[in-house]
Amino acid sequence: MPGFFRFLDDIALADMAFDAEGESLPALFDAATRALIESLADPVTIAEAWQHTVDMEEPDIDTLLFEWLGRLVYLKDAQGVVFHRATLSLNQNDARTAWHLHAELTGAPVDPATQDLRSDVKGVTKHLYAVTQEGASWKARVVLDV
């Protein structure tokens, strides 16, 4: 089942915050990724003219999600793109010492004439940042600096 997210009103007055939730870690990552993508622009208005693959490895899931979201912000500026979709796969190594994320991104160069652009997110912050498991459900709270 896909995860979901909701933007939060009363956290980070001058910035943006969201909660993401999923019944599995991949669903959580998918929901948090969609929240960030939709913060930047309406993905419906973004073509799939640009493709990019990312592979990342971190020792724990909290760090992996934080670094992944930060990578999206970096790609937005460094490549001058906004995103349509991210297809993710998530694995833990056999020794259970690291998590690996493989992401296939699509999007297009920024074009205000054809795209519904939203906020120029500058970064992911550690303020209130948390990834938690409650029963079978995974949750993350993320505050974005705009």
Binding site: A78, K122, V146
Partner: peptide, 18 residues
């Protein structure tokens, strides 16, 4: 390098937010 790659094309731009 991450910082350089984010900034090298942004000279003379306003950004967004406030």
């Amino acid at each position: 390098d991450y910082a350089v790659e984010r900034g090298i094309n942004q000279l003379g731009t306003l950004g967004s937010g406030n």
